[in-house]
Design a protein around this nucleic acid. Sequence first.
DNA 1: GGCAATTGGCACCAAATGGGTGCTAATTGG
DNA 2: CCAATTAGCACCCATTTGGTGCCAATTGCC
Lengths: 163, 163
Amino acid sequence: MLQLTKRTEYGLIALLHLANSEGRVVPVREIGERFPLPKRVLAESLKDLGRAGIVESQRGAAGGYWLARGAGQITLGEVISALEGAPTLTSCQDLGASNARGQCEVQPVCPIRSPLTRLRQGIWALLEGTTLRSLANPSLTPADLLAAAGSPLSSPLGDQPAA
Amino acid sequence: MLQLTKRTEYGLIALLHLANSEGRVVPVREIGERFPLPKRVLAESLKDLGRAGIVESQRGAAGGYWLARGAGQITLGEVISALEGAPTLTSCQDLGASNARGQCEVQPVCPIRSPLTRLRQGIWALLEGTTLRSLANPSLTPADLLAAAGSPLSSPLGDQPAA
DNA sequence: GGCAATTGGCACCAAATGGGTGCTAATTGG
DNA sequence: CCAATTAGCACCCATTTGGTGCCAATTGCC
C-alpha cells in the first residue's frame, strides 16, 4: 500500500516542530502537548530517528531532542528509511532486509522487476530531493519537487543560499 | 508502507503479458502457465481491472481478457487505483473512502497535512505520467520518468508519435 | 442438448503488519 | 535523593493482506 505509517507521520510532525525550535532542547512531552498524539508512539519514533542519526538527544531531567543537522540537510528519504524502511515498491526488491528465504519464484521470467526498479529509483529521487525545509516551504509546488528530484546533485530544495 | 500489494504486482505482470498479446483473447490459464503465480489471485486482479475498465473480457469456452486500450493509454496510476486504491500517503487524505468516523484529531494544528498533500501530488504525477508502454521500454531512465511527470499534459511517455 | 472451459461474485480463513501499551533500566539536573 | 527524561524490550489487539472454496453465468464445440 502506498501509504506512510503513523510512526512516520508522527516522526515528521516531531521533526518539523524541532526545526521550529532550533537552539533548544525539546522534550517529548512538549511535542505531545502541542499535538494530540499518543506520546508513547511519538517517543518510539524519536528513538528511531536518534538511532538513525537524524536527531540527537540528551537524557536526564532537562533532556530532550534536537535536529542533528539543519532542516535543509535532512531529506524525506532518510526519515522514511529510518522509520519504516526504504521504499521497496515490491517485496522482491527489499535487498537490505533478511531476504533469506530464497528469491521470488517469478524472478527468472519476471517482466516487471526491472521496470519497477526504475520507478522505485524515480520515487526515491523524489524523496531524497525533498528536505524538511522544502517540505515546510508552502510556496513549493509538486512540479517544483519533481524538478528538484530530476537534478538531485545540483541543488536540493531548501539548500539555496539564504537570500 | 511504500510497497505495492501482490494483487498489484500480479495485475501488472498480467497487463504486460496482455500488451504483448495484442489482437488475441488471453485466458487466465495462459498467464498462469507462463508465470508461476497463484492463478486464483491473478484471476481476482483481472476481475478488478475489468471492473475499472482497463481490460475487457469475454466469458465462455474461448473467453479471456485483452487490453481495453493501447498500452500507451494505460497509466500506472489508474492500474494502482484499480487494484489497491489511489496512493494516499497519509490516512487522513483518503478522501474517497468512507471517512465517516470524523476527521483526524491533529488536523486543526497539523503541520504536515498540506506539505504531504503536495508530495502526494508529485508521486501521483509520476504514476500518471508512466504508461504501460513506458514501463516496458527499458531505455527510459528514472530521470525520464520524472521529467515526463513534470509536464504530464504535453506528452505522456509512450505516446510519442511512432517514428 | 450437453459438456467443458471460462469469467463473475461472494464469503471465508490464516498469516503478516501496524498501532499501541507495560514495564523497567539508565541518565542527569536540582 | 528525587523527579524528569531518554533507552530498550516484550507483548497484545485490530486491520490488512494473501490466498482458497464454492457456485453461478456464459459460451464455444461436439
